[in-house]
């Protein structure tokens, strides 16, 4: 009999959603889900519920604003296209009523794709069809950032990967991964320059200030350690890519 059929429900859940930190250590966080597609909303509620969130669903922008006035929530997941109002307007009005972080669901190719981050005040956005795990990672990231206090640096999110520069932690699917602080600095330098080729010299310059632990090791060794921590398959890296004769590039589009 294959081993995985004997897993307990809790184990299955952990596999699917990562560690259920929120259910164990604090009260379930309340998520206001504003989505007009009833079936998607139902499934999202089930999924987020399974990950330990309490989900309240409304299908209209006006209802969302009412609901928010009636009872506070910890975060809002907001669809960009609603039958009664533009999601952008909802977001703007929401901002005046509450400081709960907003995760906006858009569709790739929307012109709004690009404006969203810039002007709307949504804390993050995710194009449909999103990978459910990425939604979770981003939701947790915006909640955590809110918890850390607003002054801290925003975490960098790349797909299911989250780099929290303020807390100096690294997570995949919400599960923390350990690397040394030098490696963390290296990763931040790479991630802050995602989509650009960085030569080894440039990288060394970028992390110069860091305490030189293990100075005998080359950049390549550190990179392979980081890869072991963040790549799904370290033999075929998709996040930190070697460019022959040029250096490394941190991928901009990740899963």
């Amino acid at each position: 009999m294959p081993r995985n059929t004997r897993r307990t429900r809790a184990e299955n859940r952990r596999l699917r959603f990562g560690p259920a930190i929120s259910t164990v250590t604090r009260m379930a966080e309340r998520i206001l889900l504003v989505e007009d597609d009833a079936r998607l909303a139902e499934m999202l509620s089930e999924y987020l519920g399974g990950a330990g969130f309490r989900v309240v669903h409304v299908g209209f922008g006006a209802a969302a604003l009412e609901r928010l006035a009636a009872e506070p929530c910890d975060a809002v997941v907001l669809d960009l296209m609603l039958p009664d109002m533009d999601g952008l307007d909802v977001c703007r009005q929401l901002r005046t009523k509450s400081d709960a972080p907003v995760l906006m669901l858009t569709a790739r190719g929307d012109a709004t794709d690009r404006i969203v981050g810039l002007e709307l005040g949504a804390d993050d956005y995710l194009p449909k069809p999103f990978a459910p795990r990425e939604l979770l990672a981003r939701l947790r990231a915006i909640l955590r950032r809110r918890g850390n206090g607003t002054s801290s640096e925003a975490p960098l999110c790349f797909g299911r990967l989250e780099i929290d520069r303020a807390a100096r932690t690294l997570r995949i699917d919400g599960a923390e991964r350990m690397i040394t602080s030098y490696q963390f600095a290296l990763l931040v330098a790479l991630a802050e320059n995602a989509g650009r080729v960085l030569s080894r010299d440039t990288l060394m310059d970028l992390v110069k200030g860091e305490a030189l632990e293990a100075f005998d090791r080359s950049i390549d060794v550190h990179v392979s350690r980081i890869r072991a921590a963040i790549e799904d398959d370290a033999k075929h890296p998709r996040r930190i890519i070697t460019v022959r004769g040029a250096g490394y590039v941190f991928a901009k589009a990740q899963e």
Binding site: L40, K128, F130, A131
Partner: peptide, 24 residues
């Protein structure tokens, strides 16, 4: 054009969620 992307991708998002919800 503006709506088509959203209209077509919402059901796709559902399918993706359904696959994830099938779990182990």
């Amino acid at each position: 054009l503006a709506n088509a992307s959203h209209e077509l991708r919402t059901p796709l998002a559902r399918v993706r969620l359904a696959v994830e919800l099938m779990g182990e």
